[in-house]
């Protein structure tokens, strides 16, 4: 049986801009993945707990308020702490170029800014997961 890719789409932080998260969630579903959506206003602890319980392959994070620099690294750290550091963590939102480099250093695999197509994201996820399961 073909292994389903499971993705957690999460909105950590306080901002309620879920247009992007929902569009991406729909696109991943349409690409045949199982997408668990957390809803809004998640703390890093809630995101990590959900990622572990759902045993997702991918964690997709979206923040548009500027809190990414604190919350994303915290989520990555907590995942590692809980023995789930192997998950592919990707992010999107209003994220300045300099921060992207920083985030990649701490373990965010890729950052998708405004103007990214959903196809880019779904293709990226498929490719990464395929290369990991080899």
């Amino acid at each position: 049986m073909e292994r389903k890719i499971r993705v957690l789409v999460a909105k950590p932080g306080l901002d309620g801009h879920d247009r992007g998260a929902k569009v991406v969630a729909s696109a991943l579903r349409d690409a045949g993945m199982e997408v668990v959506y957390t809803g809004l206003h998640q703390t890093p602890e809630m995101v990590v707990e959900a990622a572990i319980q759902e045993d997702v392959d991918v964690v997709g994070l979206s923040i548009l308020s500027g809190a990414h620099a604190v919350l994303f690294p915290k989520i990555v750290d907590l995942l590692k702490e809980r023995g789930a550091g192997d998950k592919l963590v990707i992010a999107g939102g209003i994220i300045p170029e300099d921060d992207v480099e920083e985030l990649k250093k701490v373990g965010i695999a890729n950052v998708f800014g405004p103007g990214t197509t959903t196809t880019e994201i779904t293709e990226y996820v498929k490719k990464e997961i395929a290369s990991r399961s080899k």
């Binding site: 932080g13 306080l14 308020s65 500027g66 809190a67 620099a69 604190v70 915290k74």
Partner: peptide
């Protein structure tokens, strides 16, 4: 965001969001 959501700047949920 903390002001919009009614949290003071020193609230745990405000961490990383203050003045952003």
């Amino acid at each position: 965001m903390p002001t919009i959501m009614g949290y003071d700047s020193d609230h745990v949920r405000s961490h990383g969001e203050v003045g952003m």
